[in-house]
């Protein structure tokens, strides 16, 4: 497979900084606007992109991303739209890793093989599925791996030593550490607990570890960037889109650039 994920983390490491991973919900505020938002993420200095697939029942998300899901679905966003957004992103940005993130049901609706296939063809590099833990890997994992896509798993504060190997089994790309036991966009974890957790995860895997949930300010990003391979920011960007709607792109770009600067901006495009 043409792997874009590990070279990206490697480049960032060479530059002595953490990778900036940015999330937005696909189709928010409309499918037509998403391309410009994604371009703004890249222009601001995002290294990897997580493109959320909207779902009616985003059980692991806080108010910000819940509203983004509603805006997107309200605008009529379909799975076909998301795939088209991904494919055109890939044409404009051949090197930037693109990850689809979402819930199981929209991914498996037409069969996991179908989903893996179309995602691959759209130029997607990996998939994060909130509600498919290791125990249900069979629902999606084999199809993704068969298609050459990374299945990126989540580790959480409740993932203890005994459980970590199970979480790592069959996961690739990077490991996403959800730093708080809770939903997206709420409180932030204490820095000390993040450091301890990253060390614990690193003792079990060579995969890069990206830390997310509750990261809002450049200062928080910088602090986490000192101990993790990547910093994930989602709700804060989604809030900007919520506030400015179709005109959000320049604001998104500016905000993302502030994060990137805080992480150590070698060369923002």
């Amino acid at each position: 497979m043409t792997d874009r994920i590990s070279p990206t983390f490697a480049t960032c490491r060479e530059q002595g900084r953490a990778a900036l991973v940015c999330f937005i919900t696909g189709g928010d505020p409309t499918p037509n606007d998403t391309g410009a938002m994604l371009d703004a993420l890249v222009a601001g200095g995002a290294d990897l992109i997580e493109l959320g697939m909207p779902f009616t029942d985003p059980m692991a998300d806080g108010p910000a991303i819940q509203k983004a899901n509603l805006r997107s679905l309200g605008a009529g966003t379909t799975t076909a739209d998301i795939l088209e957004i991904a494919a055109s992103f890939r044409q404009r940005h051949p090197q930037v890793p693109l990850i689809l993130m979402g819930y199981a049901n929209p991914m498996i609706r037409r069969g996991s093989d179908w989903f893996a296939d179309v995602a691959k063809n759209a130029g997607v590099d990996g998939v994060i599925c909130v509600d498919i833990p290791t125990e249900e890997d069979g629902e999606l994992g084999p199809a993704l791996r068969e298609a050459g896509l990374h299945f990126i798993r989540l580790a959480t504060p409740t993932t203890d030593k005994a459980r970590l190997p199970a979480v790592l089994q069959g996961s690739s790309g990077f490991l996403y550490y959800v730093s708080v036991a809770g939903i997206t966009g709420k409180q932030q974890a204490a820095q000390a607990s993040i450091e301890e957790a990253v060390a614990h995860l690193k003792s079990g895997t060579d995969l890069p570890v990206a830390v997310g949930f509750g990261v809002r300010t450049p200062e928080q990003a910088a602090a986490i960037g000192k101990v993790a391979d990547g910093v994930v920011v989602g709700s804060a960007i989604v809030d900007i889109i919520g506030e400015h709607g179709a005109n959000a792109a320049p604001h998104v770009r500016e905000y993302v650039a502030s994060l990137r600067t805080a992480l150590g901006a070698e060369e923002v495009a």
Binding site: D131, T159, V167
Partner: peptide
């Protein structure tokens, strides 16, 4: 089919 936080 739950988030990892709930699995344990």
């Amino acid at each position: 089919y739950v988030a990892e936080t709930l699995m344990p």
